Simulated assay, not measured.
Amino acid sequence: MKAAMRSKMWTYNPRDDIDFEKGMLFTNVDAFRAALNDYVIQKGFPLVRQKNERTRCTAKCGIEGCQWRIHASPVGDTTTFMIKSYHAEHTCVMSKKNTKATSD
């Protein structure tokens, strides 16, 4: 079980594009949030966090009518976060203007 979880654990690689998928694991909620911010900067769309707590994180595309959405929460009693639902398709026109891009 632990080997299967490690194989789906997300690791940061600055040279690769981030591609989310249902079932992907993160070490904790902060790792998921950091990956989500980097993803939004790479893809170029505004992000709206509907729920942003220690026990769950739900976000959607900030453009009206777009269907992109992601939800992650802990696996059991651990701090490991897993993407539980993910709708990857954008139905909007993306923009390279992004408020999530910072000097970091």
Rank of each mutant, 00 (worst) to 15 (best):
T91W: 00
L47D: 01
V48A: 08
A31C: 11
T58W: 04
T80K: 07
K51I: 07
T79C: 04
T99P: 00
K97D: 14
T91C: 12
S73G: 03
F32K: 02
L36K: 06
Q50T: 14
C61R: 04
G44Y: 09
Q42W: 05
K8M: 10
R6C: 03
A34D: 14
F26G: 03
A4E: 14
D77I: 03
T79E: 14
H71F: 06
A34E: 13
Y86H: 13
F32I: 01
C57I: 05
K51Y: 09
G65Y: 12
E89I: 14
A35D: 02
I70P: 02
W10E: 10
N37E: 11
N52C: 10
F81E: 05
S95V: 13
A88N: 14
M9L: 15
S95T: 15
R15S: 13
M82F: 00
T91K: 11
T80G: 00
G23T: 06
K96W: 03
G23P: 03
P14W: 08
P74T: 06
G65M: 10
P46D: 03
L25P: 04
E64T: 10
P46C: 02
K84M: 04
S95R: 12
M5A: 11
I83M: 07
D17L: 11
E64R: 14
I18P: 04
S73A: 15
F20V: 03
D77Q: 10
K43H: 10
S85R: 13
M24F: 03
R56P: 00
N28Q: 07
Q67W: 04
